[in-house]
């Protein structure tokens, strides 16, 4: 399995890393810009959406997810699953709390 993993791993060109870095910087600026706008109830989903795209870029490009083995993707998806549990169950509190009281 280790042989397969190594054989599929191609070193990415430097330009890809630089482009990804540029995109992350742009998205950071976009986050700050969005933070000063009033999107009402969409403010948080928009901020989380931008953050999600940034995290995906880091995992896929910088952490070499694009050329990793299926087992590595199992680990990545399992981690996301656990984070979903954390956020989902936490939101079960926030979305059903008696805020009016």
């Amino acid at each position: 399995m280790a042989t397969t993993e190594h054989s599929t791993h191609q070193p990415a060109p430097l330009s890809l890393y630089l482009a990804t870095f540029g995109m992350l910087m742009f998205l950071t600026i976009l986050t700050i810009f969005a933070g000063f706008q009033n999107f009402g109830m969409w403010s948080t989903p928009i901020a989380l959406g931008i953050a999600g795209v940034k995290a995906a870029l880091v995992v896929v490009i910088f952490m070499h997810g694009y050329s990793s083995s299926p087992l590595t993707w199992v680990i990545i998806l399992a981690s996301m699953f656990f984070m979903t549990i954390m956020l989902g169950l936490m939101l079960s509190d926030y979305m059903s709390r008696g805020w009016a009281m």
């Binding site: 656990f82 079960s92 509190d93 059903s96 709390r97 008696g98």
Partner: peptide, 18 residues
């Protein structure tokens, strides 16, 4: 173990439904 944590918080004012 990962899906039971809020039993430490029943008296904090968290949602009774949660």
């Amino acid at each position: 173990g990962f899906i039971v944590w809020a039993h430490h918080m029943f008296t904090t004012g968290m949602s009774p439904y949660a």
